[in-house]
Write a protein that binds this DNA or RNA. Structure first.
Lengths: 147, 147
DNA sequence: TGCTTGAAGCGATCGGGTTGCAACAACATG
DNA sequence: CATGTTGTTGCAACCCGATCGCTTCAAGCA
């Protein structure tokens, strides 16, 4: 029976292979950054990622984190979402979902795409606008802050 | 019959009176900034506003623009919306509407609140989340860019 | 006409992110 | 295994929008 770790390792190697396939190179920073991403699960800021990575390899520079995240987005492995006021979070591109962010406490709620289906249909019909809120979260108040 | 200009002037004076009522002062920068806002209509960046203001009064500093806009928001006269990637736009707080912004060409589409009613209801029911997209635009593709 | 004190002007700073460049090292090749 | 090519890295400088601290100025009251 495969442990979680071995599953992640397999995935890590699969992602690294994608770099090699495109004539890229497998480096320590890339290995470490992707590992940190896999461990974090989802919704990590570049900053948090930098902390994790640098706790193992202090010399990995912020700009390397950003460049690696950029490459991973080109490969379709991760997506980034702007939660508002500048900070962006990164998450694995597995399941397509939307993000609701509480303006009061910052909580992020993930909701399936289909919740937006009716809105998307209505907006497209009335305004010809194709709603794609993947890259920007929808703001509001979470359950506890709304009360 | 009142011209548009006199209507704006009346409005300008009404807003300035709000400052006085709160123990504030009516200054040239404030007068100029609010005038520029009224003339612009809606969706001005702080930068555009600064250009307009400075063409009449070159000494008005950026920080003054921001501080004045902040005060106007406290008074409930203007709102600001983040269209994404850092830049924010300001608009008079008259009619409550939402903003759709095209990620491709930057076009902003204003839609009435009620377009979001179904989404808001569904999200609140399922996730207890109160959607308030006033301060952040919803991203997507406009009619011409979607094709 | 002064006085008080809220604003303005200025430059420095901040925060998230990007870029130019020299040095390094991953990988292919001999 | 040594070598060369070239994709990546580390670093520092920089960008952009926005904010802050501080001194100076002037709006509006007595």
């Amino acid at each position: 029976m495969a442990s979680v770790e071995s599953v992640d390792t397999a995935r890590l190697e699969r992602i690294l292979a994608m770099f090699r396939d495109r004539g890229g190179r497998v480096t320590t920073p890339r290995r470490t950054i992707i590992t940190a991403l896999l461990e974090a699960g989802s919704h990590v800021t570049a900053d948090e990622l930098a902390d994790t990575v640098q706790s193992a390899h202090p010399d990995v520079h912020r700009s390397t984190i950003y460049r690696c995240l950029g490459s991973l987005e080109e490969l379709g492995v991760v997506d980034h979402v702007h939660l508002g006021h500048g900070r962006a979070v990164y998450h694995l591109a597995d399941e397509s979902h939307q993000h609701l962010v509480c303006e009061s406490c910052g909580t992020v709620v993930e909701v399936p795409d289909k919740v937006f289906a009716t809105l998307a249909k209505g907006v497209h019909k009335q305004f010809g606008f194709l709603v794609q809120p993947r890259h920007f979260a929808v703001a509001g108040r979470c359950r506890s802050c709304a009360g």
